[in-house]
């Protein structure tokens, strides 16, 4: 896709981010930058610390070391303040407000960009009505953008899986972020849905929001990203263009293991997958 477009402004700058849980170092000294108008991919085997790194970026975890800055300002370690600053995220295991409607979900995303407090709600001031109308308009715009406008009054839990993923993106976009963090946006999707998500991410980028995306679907990542970083056992192994990463032997080794006598059979592969799933569970 687009080649290495290096823009002058850095949106996200993570330096030496380290996260330790007791004796376990989940993320060790990772540096990562995301520039304006860029889509950056973060890949790595299960349990490599990708989601932990995301949680450090968004203030859900307080990193043991290192700091994260957004457009030159150091981000605080409070989740809602990070969002207010302009970094929005989605979750690996979908975390929608299941019993709210589609529209309400997106309206919640508008929270940081509106100010109407309890008093104006109780007194129904003209400002309140205006702000509500504006929020709703913006939310509907985003629903049109993600193709969910027809389902505005459906409960989020009743959406099909693929649309739940889309709604999560719409909800994150509602806070008008400068950087969008997507945690496995195509997990569990079929090829058509994956392609649709890919188009959606490009459209988001074209609207001027930088994107950092974790994904396992290599085709998706290599089609989408301007730059890819590989995280293995909590440390950054390689960073570069999709082509560079794809051809790097260490990446192949990290994913498939170093070659040994005799190709791995189906049984072993299943075993590995199982083990990986377990580590993934621990990671959460």
């Amino acid at each position: 896709m687009t080649s290495d477009t290096i823009t002058s402004t850095t949106v996200l700058d993570a330096r030496g981010v380290t996260m330790r849980f007791g004796g376990l170092t989940a993320v060790g000294g990772v540096d990562l930058t995301v520039n304006e108008g860029e889509i950056v991919g973060l890949i790595g085997p299960n349990g490599a610390g990708k989601t932990t790194f995301f949680n450090c970026l968004t203030g859900l975890y307080i990193p043991s070391e290192g700091q994260v800055s957004y457009k030159g300002k150091v981000l605080p370690h409070r989740s809602h303040l990070v969002t207010q600053a302009g970094v929005a995220r989605t979750f690996q295991n979908i975390r929608l407000f299941a019993n709210m409607t589609v529209l309400e979900n997106v309206l919640v995303g508008r929270h940081t960009r509106t100010k109407e407090g309890l008093w104006s709600a109780l007194l129904r001031t003209p400002g309140f009505k205006k702000a509500e109308r504006a929020s709703e308009e913006r939310a509907m715009e985003l629903l049109e953008f993600t193709g969910l406008a027809a389902k505005r009054d459906t409960l989020a839990r009743n959406l099909p899986y693929g649309e739940q993923r889309k709604l999560e993106i719409a909800r994150a976009l509602a806070s008008d972020p400068g950087l969008l963090l997507l945690d496995e946006p195509t997990a569990g999707m079929n090829p058509q849905e994956t392609r649709a998500t890919q188009d959606l991410v490009f459209a988001v980028r074209d609207q001027g929001t930088a994107v950092l995306v974790i994904e396992h679907d290599m085709r998706f990542i290599f089609n989408l990203c301007d730059r890819v970083a590989v995280l293995v056992q909590g440390e950054k192994l390689v960073e570069g263009t999709p082509a560079q990463v794809q051809s790097d032997e260490r990446v192949v080794a990290a994913y498939l293991g170093t070659p040994f006598e005799g190709a791995p059979g189906a049984d072993e592969a299943a075993e590995v997958a199982q083990a990986e799933q377990r580590t993934e569970g621990d990671d959460q």
Partner: peptide
């Protein structure tokens, strides 16, 4: 519904 997601939405 989900306190973690709510705070990730800026609440």
């Amino acid at each position: 519904e989900d306190e973690t997601a709510a705070s990730a939405m800026g609440i």
